[in-house]
């Protein structure tokens, strides 16, 4: 369990994150949603100590994370940020091996190699194990980074927009792997995600943010509601139940409506 207690972040005078308090349940997928600039990524960075918070505290199983030694923390929480451009001559396997650094400090043991092999097969990367990462497509590279996080073998995994640059097939693939990690290994996964339908279908809990504050948080069905989402995104959203999943439709309901009609409606509203 991770508790955020009134954390805030200022950039100059501007409060980008304002007194955020929320509990993240163990063994679940929790998604952070909200418009651009709502402070989702900033919260994620602060929870994972990449960024210092200006006030408040983050408790990991009751203990302040700032008091934990950095290398011990690396065995408990893993974070993957959204931009991962690297100009290095490094192979897929070598990069994934870095996930074992908190345990082996660079000297890989037999056990480390087994865990690396497992992470590679989990992300189905066997075919390009020995390729250099600068030869891969954006989607493949994203899978390599996620494999590195899996090799890190932490209870908590934070992913900042893991679906960035991925097509639908790979997006679904990644979300299914995340669910599998929760189901089979009882991991706790926290993601920032823009596609609310992916959030709605694949998460257990959703935290919706707006203007640096938490608008709503709770079970996904309590958050994926017309009034709540319309308020957060300031646009018309309809929610349909399809195969038991709440799906957001951003289109008009009048018959034969086109995208242009929708945009006009938006302008009028």
């Amino acid at each position: 369990m991770i508790d955020l207690k009134g954390i805030s972040k200022f950039y100059g005078q501007k409060k980008v994150v304002n007194d955020v308090s929320v509990s993240i349940a163990k063994g679940k997928v929790t998604s952070f949603i909200g418009p651009n600039g709502a402070g989702k990524s900033t919260v994620l960075s602060m929870v994972t100590r990449l960024l210092n918070h200006d006030s408040g505290e983050v408790l990991l199983e009751g203990k302040n994370i700032l008091n934990a030694p950095s290398d011990a923390l690396a065995k408990k929480i893993a974070i993957l940020k959204q931009s991962n451009n690297m100009d290095l001559k490094i192979t897929v396997r070598e990069l994934i091996s870095f996930g074992r650094f908190p345990y082996s400090k660079g000297r890989l043991t037999q056990k480390d190699n087994e865990i690396i092999d497992e992470a590679i097969s989990y992300m189905e990367l066997e075919d390009f194990e020995e390729r250099y990462i600068d030869e891969l497509s954006g989607g493949q590279r994203q899978r390599v980074y996620i494999a590195m996080t899996i090799a890190q073998d932490t209870e908590y995994i934070f992913l900042d927009e893991p679906l960035n640059n991925l097509d639908m097939k790979h997006s679904v693939q990644i979300m299914q792997i995340l669910r599998r990690l929760v189901r089979e290994r009882n991991k706790t996964i926290i993601i920032v995600i823009h596609d609310i339908n992916f959030a709605s279908c694949y998460s257990d809990n959703i935290v919706a943010m707006k203007d640096g504050k938490i608008a709503v948080s709770g079970k996904k069905d309590d958050v994926i509601k017309k009034e709540i989402l319309e308020d957060i995104y300031e646009m018309d959203i309809n929610i349909e139940c399809i195969y038991g999943q709440q799906i957001c439709v951003y289109f008009d309901e009048h018959e034969n409506a086109t995208v242009d009609d929708f945009i006009e409606d938006q302008a009028r509203a």
């Binding site: 994972t48 100590r49 990449l50 950095s70 290398d71 011990a72 923390l73 690396a74 065995k75 893993a78 974070i79 993957l80 940020k81 690297m86 290095l88 870095f98 996930g99 650094f101 908190p102 400090k105 660079g106 000297r107 890190q152």
Partner: peptide, 21 residues
């Protein structure tokens, strides 16, 4: 401690994630 130099090559975020202060 040359291994932590390898980790620092990956950039600040990755290095912190992997437990390098």
């Amino acid at each position: 401690d040359f291994h932590s130099l390898d980790v620092i090559t990956l950039g600040r975020d990755h290095a912190i994630n992997l437990g390098v202060n």
